[in-house]
Write a protein that binds this DNA or RNA. Structure first.
Length: 405
RNA sequence: GGUGAGGUUCCCGAGUGGCCAAAGGGAACAGACUGUAAAUCUGUCGGCGAAGCCUUCGGAGGUUCGAAUCCUCCCCUCACCA
């Protein structure tokens, strides 16, 4: 089975510039391909992870991935699919973010012995000469055509700066550079990158007269079209500092029934027979599939040990048990003893404001050691700490352990 | 640069001198129902609080007993024209 069939079967593929050529190429040759990642934050997200899964599948079938860090393109910012211009990032921030990306990627992709390449488009974009670039590259782009591009559509109403308008040209140029440097003949990316990918494919074909190819993958969205990987706290990050393994596990443990199969196919390496079996479970049974999804993903990203911990903590809290060791914990100082419950929760950042704490108690949504808090006047005393800890439950699933420092 | 339309609480969007912490919708949170799911229903949804107080409607001033609403200047966005 070629990697093309694998990607197709698992539901990755969205659009292709030349379907037959891509299929044949992937079956017959070892292909060097690239996916670009713009370091706009200091951690990758699950959206990036989907791209890394693709890289993983490709690499397993002997193809050579290039992970292209957008040190140059991030200076400009991709307008695709965004309704507003992104805040401009400084060079130092971008470089630091790129380092973070790099470290995280190395956990999933094997970069040893040239099995994969890490590149950064800052290396060629930042030193470009404006006029030379316009003459050599800009002359191959038709503004008339660019304006038709899907990725600018939303921006044609709300406004698009010339800076961002050039993003497509820069990404097109990336492909040309990678083709020249590494004989990279295939660009992959999320479906929001379709316009940018076409730009690159056409540019290389015009200048080099070589049949390079492009293909996009499904975006990680829920069935009603919303982006997945978002929580009330923001994105689901791969960095354990930003999204703790327990929260990460819980996110996937709680995905909607209708997403389970898709997530298993896209975000794990489980064989499709298993994915189909698990994804077709019904009612209560499908919780098994969610546990496996959550465990597998946590394992890939945070390691087996963390995955075990997260799973154990979750089972203890939701299914009963004694081992509370791995539940998220907030330490408090001695000085908070005798204070009101709201003060303590606020200090632990379990509640963002005191008003919200009051509201929570008024609505009966706060529990201390499994007992509903009836009054906002409850004082936190030493008696509430059993075995040195106080269990807080916010709503149905927000568990926190509070311990005294 | 000219002309026109705008900038409202997380988002969309009403509000054009007191009844406005500001309609409605979305998101979010809590409760009921459940399977740590979805859908549905109910409640909450600026902050601090016992009442009450404080901060908010692009920014800075001003008029007024009283301004998101009126005036002045400034900043920004969009459309058409140049």
């Amino acid at each position: 089975m070629s990697v093309f069939d694998v990607l197709k079967e698992r539901g990755f593929i969205q659009q292709m510039t030349h379907e037959d050529e891509i299929r044949q190429l992937l079956e017959k040759e070892k292909v060097t391909f690239y996916i670009g990642f713009d370091p706009t934050a200091d951690s990758l997200t699950v959206g990036h992870f989907l791209q890394l899964m693709v890289m993983g599948h490709m690499q397993r079938h002997g193809h050579r991935p290039i992970a292209l860090l957008g040190g140059g393109t991030t200076m400009v910012g991709d307008p695709s699919g965004k309704s507003d211009m992104r805040k401009m990032l400084g060079k130092e921030d971008i470089a630091r973010n790129a380092e973070c990306f790099k470290k995280q990627m190395e956990k999933f992709i094997d970069f040893s012995d040239g099995k994969a390449v890490m590149a950064n488009n800052a290396d060629w974009l930042l030193s470009l000469n404006y006029v030379d670039f316009l003459r050599e590259i800009g002359s191959h782009f038709s503004v008339n055509r660019m304006l038709q591009a899907e990725c600018f559509k939303t921006r044609m109403e709300s406004g698009l700066t010339f800076m961002e308008f050039n993003y497509m040209v820069m990404q097109g140029y990336d492909f040309l550079e990678l083709f020249r440097r590494f004989n990279c003949t295939l660009q992959l990316g999320g479906d929001d990158q379709w316009s940018n990918i076409i730009a690159g494919v056409e540019l290389v074909r015009k200048i080099e007269a070589k049949p390079v190819l492009g293909m996009t993958f499904t975006l990680l969205t829920t069935s009603d079209g919303k982006k997945m990987g978002k929580t009330e706290k923001g994105a689901v990050w791969l960095d354990p500092q930003k999204t703790p393994p327990y929260d990460f596990y819980q996110y996937w443990r709680n995905v909607a029934d209708s997403e389970v199969k898709r997530c298993l196919a896209l975000l794990t390496f489980l064989p499709m027979t298993e994915v189909n079996r698990l994804g077709n479970l019904k009612d209560q049974e499908i919780n098994q599939a969610k546990k496996i999804l959550a465990f597998e993903m946590t394992k890939m990203i945070h390691g087996e040990e963390e995955a075990q911990k997260a799973q154990k903590a979750a089972e203890t809290l939701f299914e009963g048990g004694a081992d509370l060791q791995d539940v998220p914990t907030s330490p408090i100082g001695q000085g908070l003893l005798g204070q009101g419950i709201i003060e303590v929760l606020f200090a632990c950042q379990i509640i963002p404001t005191k008003s919200e704490g009051r509201r929570l108690i008024a609505q009966g949504g706060l529990y201390v050691n499994s007992a509903k808090v009836e009054s906002i006047d409850l004082k936190v005393t030493a008696e509430l700490f059993k075995d040195g800890m106080m269990m807080i439950r916010k709503g149905k699933k927000g568990y926190h352990k509070v311990v005294i420092k």
